[in-house]
Simulated scan of single mutants.
Amino acid sequence: MNFNVRSRGDHTSNVLTQQVKTYLEEFGLTYDEEEPEIVISIGGDGTLLEAFHQYSHRSDETSFVGVHTGHLGFYADWQPEEIEKLVIHIAKTPFKIVEYPLIEVVIRHTNEMETERYLALNECTVKSMEGSLVMDIEIKGDHFETFRGDGLCLSTPSGSTAYNKALNGAILHPSLASIQMAEMASINNRVYRTIGSPIVLPEHHTCLLKPKNDVDFQVTVDHLTLVQKKVKSIQVRVANEKIRFARFRPFPFWKRVKESFIAE
């Protein structure tokens, strides 16, 4: 089996990365940065997000497993002292595949620029580079509202515990293939009216954002920040692709939520 190891870059993560690489090669696995079947992420959720984007084109072939060397992460379920146990599992145990939904972000332009397509594991955010964001929002091809405010956050269920939660969005279980849209400081008056609450769209509903003015936009896709010019529309829907996690033991979602936000 081919594998790759991604490190956060700090001393502890780098040492563990070298240990995992050495151990797995001793078990006869092949280190392969181009076409790994499994990627071991050592760091935090940010490290796993970076690993996912490196191999998002291999969503059907590459699985991920995380080791956290800082605070408990939602995607990293192994601790540094369990490295040897994890290595033995990877080398000797057929693992279970757990798939989480992703969102597809398609950005179209008014000029000759090519259409851009991205996949997000956590969320996509849209903000204006000049003043308030003003967007017409269509759902399934019908006008839903005209938004005016600081910005919009469209998240996956697994990303609902990240930026979305800070915007008072709901926490959704990753088994629900859906998109959640949360507002950032919307302006409501006689001209602009928004729903004022986060909304959840099922996988067969497409959300289309259409700018009302010709300004530049800051679009984030997980950890990536993109400045977009001459935007015609931003289309967001549940992607056909999914991220694959290698599970060697139970990793209950609600237990992670409790440990991260409630447990002392």
Rank of each mutant, 00 (worst) to 15 (best):
A182K: 00
R256A: 15
I137Q: 13
Y55F: 13
H89K: 09
H53D: 13
S233G: 04
N213F: 03
V67R: 01
S197E: 12
L119R: 05
S41T: 14
M181H: 00
S7Y: 03
V105I: 15
E34V: 12
G169V: 08
V236K: 09
S260P: 00
Y31D: 11
N14D: 15
I38L: 15
F144N: 01
P174V: 11
S63E: 04
E259T: 02
H89P: 01
H53W: 07
V200R: 00
T225E: 11
P211V: 02
N4L: 10
V215Q: 09
E61N: 14
F3R: 04
V106A: 09
P198I: 04
I139F: 05
H11G: 04
F3Q: 10
P101M: 06
R244L: 10
R148Y: 05
S160K: 02
R6I: 15
G70M: 01
K21I: 14
D222A: 12
H89Y: 08
R244H: 10
Y55D: 14
H205V: 08
F52M: 11
G28A: 10
V221M: 06
E183I: 03
V191W: 07
I171Y: 04
A182I: 02
I83T: 14
I40V: 15
H223V: 11
F144I: 01
C207R: 00
H11A: 14
P202V: 07
T125G: 10
E114K: 14
G73T: 05
H223W: 04
E35H: 07
F27G: 07
P174E: 08
D222W: 02
E241A: 15
V87R: 02
H53P: 12
G9K: 01
S178Q: 06
I88A: 14
V191K: 14
G46E: 04
P211S: 05
T115N: 03
V5G: 07
T30G: 03
S186L: 02
T225R: 13
S56D: 15
V105C: 14
K165H: 11
K92A: 14
T225D: 06
Y23Q: 15
E35F: 04
I88S: 13
E116N: 08
K85C: 10
F248A: 01
S155M: 06
D214A: 12
E130L: 07
I97C: 13
N122D: 08
E99S: 15
T17D: 09
F64M: 10
L48V: 09
S158V: 09
N2H: 09
H173R: 03
S233F: 00
E25R: 07
A239Y: 03
F217Q: 06
E114P: 04
R244M: 09
I97F: 10
L154Q: 03
N189V: 00
E183S: 07
K85F: 09
I42G: 08
H204P: 00
V221R: 07
L209C: 00
G70Q: 02
L208T: 13
G159A: 03
I38D: 13
T47N: 07
E104R: 14
S186W: 00
M129Q: 09
V65C: 11
N164C: 13
A263V: 07
E130G: 03
M113H: 13
A263S: 13
T146W: 01
S41P: 04
L119K: 05
